[in-house]
Design a protein around this nucleic acid. Sequence first.
DNA 1: GCAGCGGCGGAACGAGCGCTCCGCTTTCTC
DNA 2: GAGAAAGCGGAGCGCTCGTTCCGCCGCTGC
Lengths: 200, 200
Amino acid sequence: MEAGLRVDAQRNRERVLVAARTVFARQGLEAGVDEIAREAGVGVGTLYRRFPTKDDLILAIVADGMAVLLEEIRAAAAIEDPWEALETAMLALAESMAADRGFVDAVREHLLTLPAFLSLRDRLLSAWEPLVARGRAAGVLRDGIEPVDLLLLARGVVRMPPDRNDVDPRLWRRYMAIVLDGLRAGGAGELPLGPPQPAR
Amino acid sequence: MEAGLRVDAQRNRERVLVAARTVFARQGLEAGVDEIAREAGVGVGTLYRRFPTKDDLILAIVADGMAVLLEEIRAAAAIEDPWEALETAMLALAESMAADRGFVDAVREHLLTLPAFLSLRDRLLSAWEPLVARGRAAGVLRDGIEPVDLLLLARGVVRMPPDRNDVDPRLWRRYMAIVLDGLRAGGAGELPLGPPQPAR
DNA sequence: GCAGCGGCGGAACGAGCGCTCCGCTTTCTC
DNA sequence: GAGAAAGCGGAGCGCTCGTTCCGCCGCTGC
């Protein structure tokens, strides 16, 4: 809801957002701007008046999805068992990427590199803090794991299955199970290297 | 060494291969054909006479790299301890992808989808068979793991770190340690779903 | 109901890609 | 050494993108 817009402009803005959400989810961020405009039933000019750059549009969409995801992570943090809380949050993060190809792309290409997306990334990492702290305190989470590690692990897991149509879209769960086992504190030795530094 | 070529053509063919290896390793498969030709000191026409398609060039390069990798995996298979053998092979696979961005791209976009690369993929998966069988028999490898799972896991792990210049290029080892622990047989439960079917 | 301005659509532009084409050069054969 | 054949370079084609531009349309406020 942007104030001061004519009613038709307001309506078109909304249509573009809906269309972008659909198309990005289906095809990832490489989807063409023309296709989004077609899906929205508007011209590309209209789209560009509201979102001067494709990245601006992506930011709007990703910010929306992020709000939902943050809520899920906060809900997971309310679970009593520290490990179950972590597991639930990891599955929510992975699920939101698996269900939305645009979100996966955004994590690698935008969240992790573009300054404009910095605050989104920070909010996501902050949401993980209490979960990680609690898991560490309870001795269920492997030593040395930081929120950013979980973000990178989840993204990597979601992208593991080949993206062919004949592959079960839930296959990432197979690999998530392996990673989650590897994340549990146990006989495992110390991890090599530290977590990556945040982008400047 | 292609027979029946004029000596200058032979020399240029070799130069193109060397240049392609360098450029693909540095920039991944999205690197432009023009850049390879420039690096090789030839025109694009020359390149295209020898390799009618960019994919033909990629195939030649990847086949070379694959030969080296297969040798390393076979060497790992000779290690007595079954788990150490698996671990060594996984590290070799990941290392060859980490050192060569073109190789990572090839695994996802070509090895796993294009029919022309089918025999390369089959050879890679076959090389894993004895390692996996031995690990299973010895009870050190988690139940249900297939060679293709290891390929997908290794590729996913290599791509986990953000690809920024200020990130330690060995960071993938951090995540590989987690995955390897998850792959060990242990108290862990059964994996959900089966391995993906091969591309038709 | 009308003036005027915000909004509209989509043709077109420029950059980047894989790839082709063709006039010229180099090598090979005898 | 000369003729033929093979090879060469790189301008340019056709395509796909993100983005811009501009003549027309239709809300809005009076």
